[in-house]
Design a binder for these strands. Structure first.
Lengths: 330, 330
DNA sequence: CTGAAAGCGCTTACAG
DNA sequence: CTGAAAGCGCTTACAG
């Protein structure tokens, strides 16, 4: 069913039907009513491809993340989609995985779809490969990165200040009288590197003699790996009295190890996670966490995107401050 | 940049460029090489809208869920997208919220986009409103519902057998010698109704004199509500020795209430959740859970969708069996 | 207020 | 092996 079928049944031309569909004025009242009635009768929807073609506007936004099963990515995608829907945009979701090749491929697809903007969710998009793909396929198109930034005129970044956030965590633990802090990391991402940097700087500023103690997890099963590593840590370095985990998720497993070792939390060992996610609330004991404000980050991304699409001026780079949410583990 | 620009630079017609782009044979080797080189030079991607228009195929699948921030919905969306990507399809993600009106609106949009199929993730899409929207806007188009079914020739459903699953949970607890079971529910969804039905039937089959004890939670904050309700339950009905929560998520909060009451788990009270999600593993103690096999469900949905798109014959309705995964709470 | 015509960017018989 | 032409379903000046 096309606009011509409707036109024929109404005894008018396609032009008139188009005018009615698009609510343009200058159509006879009777005619308009008749056409509207026929439109409704068939639940006719004009073909978005044809419309996009003639209007040179796809009304499509590409939303790319490594894996939407990661809570934060889903959150970002949610806010973006909800916000853009209001403006008549639809979102193509792309789970890119973690390789630059597949990300470039996704960006290419988005270019073929004539997406009007692209949102990249996660700090891992901050890579040379992605930068090149943007230059090659997304020339001039607005690109927003959630918790990341790439130095290109058409790229906008909204970042969480995790580096200072972690530094604050260190100072907070030191203030509580803790002396032997460990940072437990997992995955080498720009975001995690900043956290480690914040950890090391704060330690060294507090006591130049202290060597920052950073542990890298390595294994398939994040929870099991974190549990095992924490068990080992407390055996090999029993003086440890404060642990910062790079995410709440792995922190919960580490806490379980401490509980199983009958260490009292926070008296003997304090624990801090990152994300202030639902995991922090579910944890036993409930987990103190660095809130990197993903919700605000996500909403800010949406707002910026809408502004860019409306041709408004926005800063290329913004930072949202993180803060500590205290619970039972400190 | 269009196919004509490429054609001009190569000194050929658009037809030939199109042939090269689509890997059709019958193009001079030299010409093909030249065109390919120019294509690469500009990173040219043919406009998907124009292609879709002439080919009468959008290569777009609509993926709709109430809220992708729900872990299960994200999982479903992930598998669908990954699977379909292999076949050249892209997915439009729609967070429909919970009202039939906004769902109908989303389905309408998908129809305008000329989506070639629609996937609905979650049992709540099993409603009259959605059924009507499908009839009105998606006539004949394949629709797959994850964990739900609607009786329409073009609708396919893959369901989790949660009813029997919960019955099994009841029998399992009774076998452990538990005598006073409670089912704690949240939200009135088709899926939850089946769980309650499974609970009641199993109780009454075991002992016709026993009155099934079902509690409905009501409140904004799921975790807090579940915590409070569990506290109250144990005060008012201290004989309770087995609780089944409708999801792992709310179970974790209930467990915390039991822990705070210094009740020993599972000796005094056994607990079972549903979903076998990551929450069950994070819970303290670790939560026994009814695995409704969301991953298999999601993968099965993708497979069915691909088959339907390939014109293969598939059953309209399938059921995946649930089973209990034992952990520390039983 | 209305319609014929051109054009958006592509693909595909058809003719050569 | 190649190109001119028609057509996919729409919108929008233009003329009346």
């Amino acid at each position: 069913m096309t606009i011509y079928d409707i036109a024929q049944e109404a005894g008018v031309s396609a032009s008139t039907v188009s005018r009615v569909i698009n609510n343009k004025k200058g159509v006879n009242k009777q005619t308009r009513a008749l056409i509207e009635q026929i439109l409704k009768k068939y639940n006719f929807e004009p073909d978005a491809s044809a419309r996009g073609l003639v209007n040179q506007s796809s009304k499509i936004i590409g939303v790319m993340m490594s894996d939407i099963r990661t809570m934060h990515h889903a959150e970002g995608a949610y806010y973006i989609e909800q916000q853009l829907q209001k403006y008549g945009y639809n979102c193509i979701m792309m789970n890119s995985g973690f390789s630059d090749a597949s990300r470039a491929e996704g960006i290419r697809t988005l270019s073929a779809r004539r997406a009007e903007a692209v949102v990249l969710i996660g700090s891992t998009f901050q890579s040379e490969g992605v930068k090149n793909a943007i230059k090659e396929y997304l020339d001039g198109l607005p690109v927003i990165i959630e918790n990341g930034y790439i130095d290109l005129p058409n790229v906008y970044g909204v970042l969480a200040d995790e580096k200072n956030g972690i530094s604050e965590c260190v100072r907070y633990l030191l203030d509580k009288g803790k002396k032997h802090l460990v940072f437990i990391n997992k995955e080498d991402t720009p975001s995690n590197r900043l956290k480690i940097q914040g950890f090391c700087e704060a330690i060294q500023k507090a006591d130049a003699a202290m060597a920052p103690n950073v542990l890298w997890l390595d294994g398939e099963d994040d929870l099991q790996t974190s549990y095992d590593a924490t068990l080992r840590l407390m055996k090999e370095q029993p003086e440890t009295d404060g642990i910062i985990y790079t995410t709440d998720f792995i922190a919960t497993a580490g806490i379980r190890a401490l509980v199983d070792l009958h260490l009292s939390i926070p008296e003997q060992v304090s624990v801090i996670g990152v994300d202030n996610s639902v995991y922090a609330r579910l944890s036993y004991p409930r987990l103190t966490s660095l809130d990197n404000k993903m919700e605000i980050l996500s909403i800010t991304c949406s707002d910026i995107l809408v502004k860019v699409l409306n041709g408004e001026q926005v800063p290329n780079k913004m930072m949202i401050f993180s803060n500590i949410v205290e619970r039972e583990t400190t």
